[in-house]
Structures are given as C-alpha cells and as structure tokens.
Amino acid sequence: MLLIKNLQASVEGKQILNGLNLEVKPGEVHAIMGPNGSGKSTLASVLAGREEYEVEGGTVQFLGNDLLDMSPEDRARAGMFLAFQYPVEIPGVSNANFLKTAVNEVRKSKGLTAYDSKEFLQIMKEKMKLVEMDKAMTQRSVNEGFSGGEKKRNEIFQMAMLEPTLAILDETDSGLDIDALRIVSNGVNALRDGNRSFIVITHYQRLLDYIVPDFVHVLYKGRIVKSGTKELALELEEKGYDWIKEEVAVGA
C-alpha cells in the first residue's frame, strides 16, 4: 500500500529525514516512536504534502502511484488521511458544511455522485456515534473554540466520514485526558477493518495499549533505526531512548 524508500526531506534548509524506509501493507497498524526532533511530524507532513517541506531524495509509492507528485487534495482523494497534531480553527465554516464539501469532492474524484443533504446527514449521524460527538459540534465552525479533546475527536470523526485507505495519526494522543484517549482510540479501533492501514505517531506507549500496533518503529535522526512488535514499545517505555542512541552510535 505504502512504500517509502530512502526518503530525505528538509524544512527551511535543515535536513530532517535522512533516508527513511518503511513499508505498510493493507490492514497493518504501524506505530512510529522516537525522541523529540527525530523527524516524526516531518514524516507526517511530507506524506500529507505540506509545501514548506522539501523532498531532497527518495521515493514514496502509495497504491502504486508516485505520492510525492500529487497535490495534498489528490493524496486525500486517493485515500490518505492525516489526523493533525494541531487541528486548525476555521471560523465561519461549519463542521457539517466542511465535511459535506470534502466528502463530495472525494466522491466526485472517484466518479461517484455527490450525497444530497439528507443522505449526508444520515451518514454523519452514524459516524458521530463512533466518537461520541453531539449534533451541536457539527454545526459549530470547524474546531473553533473546541477543547483539545474535542479537536482530536473531530479529527477521528472526519476520518470516519472520509473512510481513508491509510490514516496517519500525528500525536493524536497529545493533550488528551484518559476519557478522551479512550473515545479517540475506540473510534480508531472501530475503523480497523483488516484492509485500512494506520501509521500511529506517538511519544507514549500509553496510546498503544488502546490501539494495538502490528509493528513498532523507532525513528531517530531522520531514519528508522529499530523495528519490532508491540513489545518494543513497552521496552522503550521502560528504558527510554538512550540505549537506542547508543546502538546507533556503535553501528555508525
């Protein structure tokens, strides 16, 4: 599904990703962990197509297409979804109108007819349950005045509405209390259907108790330096990152 080879990227002239390799197959959940500044959010940004990130080398294939050649909207239409670390507030655009526009633009790109208001409301109602969202939130402006937890729930709600093939969760757990974490994780788990894949970027092992990954990778200095299963996350939680840094130093 997603094949990243030797990806190198910089922002404002500073190289952040230094030859990153990763393959994600249908239905898999990959967790990406790593110390601050290791390039986790840069990876998410590059995959979603943020213009301020410069790709210096390497390739990314998404469902057989050259992802790096696609605009952000085309990536989304092809089935990629980024849950933002800092969801943006958009005053004056209602959540419902925003999502209806997004869902119908994606449908249009696939040659499907747009949902009418009634159909759309019906679908929205079903998906709202996944993240325990109330109707008032859909009528409010996108993320405006939302609490941290509400913003993250809104991200997962959007994911549920857009039904992506690959979802990238960029530190979705940051700033969440235990209840919000449970709600968000339940929403994600409900969307695991054996075909949909996830890349879960996180600082903390705690999230992975709720969203159990198939693979855990450690990102350090812009490369994946260690991969394992969910036990690796527990080991990192217990021992921190120093032993990984040492291994890298010895290897170099």
């Binding site: 909207e73 990536r75 933002f84 958009i90 997004a102 633009e105 857009l162």
Partner: peptide, 13 residues
C-alpha cells in the same frame, strides 16, 4: 494553515 487543512481533506485548492 486553514487552506492546507481543507486541501488535506480532499477539497481542491
């Protein structure tokens, strides 16, 4: 940022 957010949801520029 708002523009990118909308585009990242599949809405054309």
């Amino acid at each position: 940022e708002a523009l990118f957010y909308l585009r990242a949801r599949g809405i054309g520029e």
